[in-house]
């Protein structure tokens, strides 16, 4: 309808054209809502975290509140073993998760990129956990790992694992158990991104390689992989940051336990601020986490050649 109206209109006088030329204020008006929201709800909170990191600030102990200098930071680096434990676990969690997700995601994308009967259904089913939330993933795997009624009982019937052991409350099994639960949801993410990028590989290259008699593995190594390189680097880095920051799954699945062995740094921060109300110290921890992430984002910007092309 709108289109018809546009055609029906008589050619506009030149004035109209002038009106469409870039008004100087238009771009600023257009980004204003986004900029204001981000200033108010990202930039300001970030600055206030920096501010509180130099304060003793605990709403439940108001008599101690006040300027603390670098005390919070000294405490982090010298007297807080929990900080180091959670940092080490964060690193372990991120590398294991992202590494495995990339590996399986790549394999999965290559498989469902082939032409075969049932491809549409196969793709839909394989990708479906992508949309499932961290909390729901926890709920599902709590059911699966339940020692009485879970799948673990049936696995024990087949000789895998022991009866009556709850995988999530044993310090030796909780890590692989949580990794598998997060993989279930994380692999489809990589598979979707890589599959999307696979759509743009030029078929000519493969035909040329085929004429040359290159094996399928060689074609993958020399054509597919170089083509995917950028997408893999970027999605891997984004995912690392995401896995580092995301607390939904571990918060609900293990709560950081048993005995704190699955506490990531953000989870530790959340516990410090939500449960212990030690906002000043939590802010200092957050600042440290920011610095670590800033380092990651610089690597990310370097690799994505930000600003290098238009």
């Amino acid at each position: 309808m709108a289109q018809a109206a546009a055609v029906a209109k008589p050619p506009a006088p030149p004035r109209r054209r002038r009106a469409s030329a870039t008004p100087r204020r238009l771009p600023y008006l257009l980004i204003a809502p986004a900029a204001l929201l981000m200033l108010g709800f990202i930039a300001y909170p970030v600055l206030s975290v920096f501010y509180y990191s130099l304060q003793d600030y605990n709403p439940t102990k108001p008599w101690r509140n006040g300027f603390a200098g670098f005390d919070n930071f000294t405490r982090i680096f010298t007297e807080d073993p929990l900080f180091w434990d959670s940092l080490v676990f964060s690193a372990k969690w991120v590398f294991v998760e992202v590494g495995l997700q990339l590996l399986f995601g790549l394999a999965l994308a290559l498989i469902v990129n082939q032409t075969f009967v049932g491809r549409g259904l196969g793709r839909a089913l394989v990708f479906s956990p992508w949309a499932v939330s961290g909390v729901l993933t926890s709920a599902i795997w709590v059911l699966l790992y339940n020692s009485q009624t879970g799948i673990t009982r049936y696995l024990a019937d087949m000789g895998i694992g022991d009866y009556g052991v709850s995988w999530l409350s044993d310090t030796s099994t909780v890590f692989p158990a949580a990794v598998v639960a997060d993989l279930w949801r994380g692999v489809p993410f990589f598979a979707i991104l890589i599959l999307a990028d696979l759509q743009s590989v030029s078929k000519d290259l493969y035909e040329a390689a085929e004429v040359d008699g290159a094996s399928r593995f060689k074609q993958f190594w020399h054509i597919t992989l170089p083509h995917l390189k950028d997408a893999i680097i970027l999605s891997t880095l984004l995912r690392m940051v995401w896995e580092f920051n995301n607390v939904d799954l571990l918060y609900t699945l293990t709560g950081g336990g048993p005995a704190g062995v699955t506490t990531t740094l953000p989870l530790y921060i959340a516990n410090t601020s939500v449960d212990a109300h030690d906002f000043g110290y939590a802010s200092a921890l957050t600042t440290v986490a920011f610095v670590i992430l800033l380092f990651c984002s610089m690597v990310y910007l370097r690799l994505s050649k930000f600003g290098g092309e238009k």
Partner: peptide, 13 residues
Amino acid sequence: SQFVPGALLLVPL
């Protein structure tokens, strides 16, 4: 801002 985790801004938010 991709690297600013919402979870870490809970208190100021």
